[in-house]
Design a binder for these strands. Sequence first.
DNA 1: ACCTGAACACCGTTCAAGT
DNA 2: ACCTGAACACCGTTCAAGT
Lengths: 175, 175
Amino acid sequence: MDKFSMRKLGTALGADPMAAYRHFTDQQDLFDGMAAAMFDELELEKLPWQADWREMMRTYAHRLRSILARHPDAVPIFATRPVRSAAAIDVGNRMITQLTAAGFAPAAALQLSRCLREFAIGHILSRVAAAGRGRKPARDSPEYNELAAAADAAAGDYFDIGLTAMFDGFDRSIG
Amino acid sequence: MDKFSMRKLGTALGADPMAAYRHFTDQQDLFDGMAAAMFDELELEKLPWQADWREMMRTYAHRLRSILARHPDAVPIFATRPVRSAAAIDVGNRMITQLTAAGFAPAAALQLSRCLREFAIGHILSRVAAAGRGRKPARDSPEYNELAAAADAAAGDYFDIGLTAMFDGFDRSIG
DNA sequence: ACCTGAACACCGTTCAAGT
DNA sequence: ACCTGAACACCGTTCAAGT
């Protein structure tokens, strides 16, 4: 698959190259729509809102990660724009509500939710970025890739470890 | 300032539009160089390697954030590629060394350093992304921006709070 | 050996002309 | 009212031709 373009989108879907402009005013507008559509994949109704706040937030973060992992080419698009769709605002509000009910001050609840989202996005972004480089010969110094591979093997899948650290750290602010 | 291009880079520096190709083979190659140059701004020799591991990691994360904040247009470029420069490898090795000396298992040291970098990049990326949208009228629903602004005011600068949470969480793995 | 600029194969976006 | 495709102002990259 080669690089995305507005023209290719239309032709790939069997329409004329300008067809996208009949649905979106702009490339930015289309990208905003893509980010909102990815957020919708969270299926907010199915998130465990009634569970313990750690399980709720953990499930949210893991689902976000797996959505982004399914669309690696769209990760940079998702990561570089704030999503302000109805679903995004809804998820945000529910999270704050549940976290404050669990004992967090409103500001701390907001901070926790943001830290989590930022960590998840940074994490998947680095995974996608690293994956995008594996192919090339890297004629300069092939040792780097081996070193990176060895490091990856040693670190394993540390996403959940990072999440747990965040939870443990924020947990202290409840007492 | 309008969008970057290889041609504009040359002309902006008083040379011909193709001048960049005499120094870099590619746009990717130039971007890799930019990311490495930003990493060099860390001035690794001046990091507090001998300090407590928390202070060391905190200083590293804050310096990384302020470097990226100084170059907002380059943040997406930095965030979407792994930096494998000599300075980057050096910083990584020193961090692992100091963290293991502080009592972390090698794998945990690697995980902590990665979680921190990913959180820092995700954090600054979301700040840059949010800042890039403030200008537009947002004819659809101006309330979103006010809501976001109110939320920002309530959350304040929570970067250090996120860092501290990570530290506290990983601290438990030492005992 | 280095520099230049024309040329190629694309882009995003607009808009007059068709139906 | 919707669709089409030509046109405009760009891109990244290559490469023959100059010096």
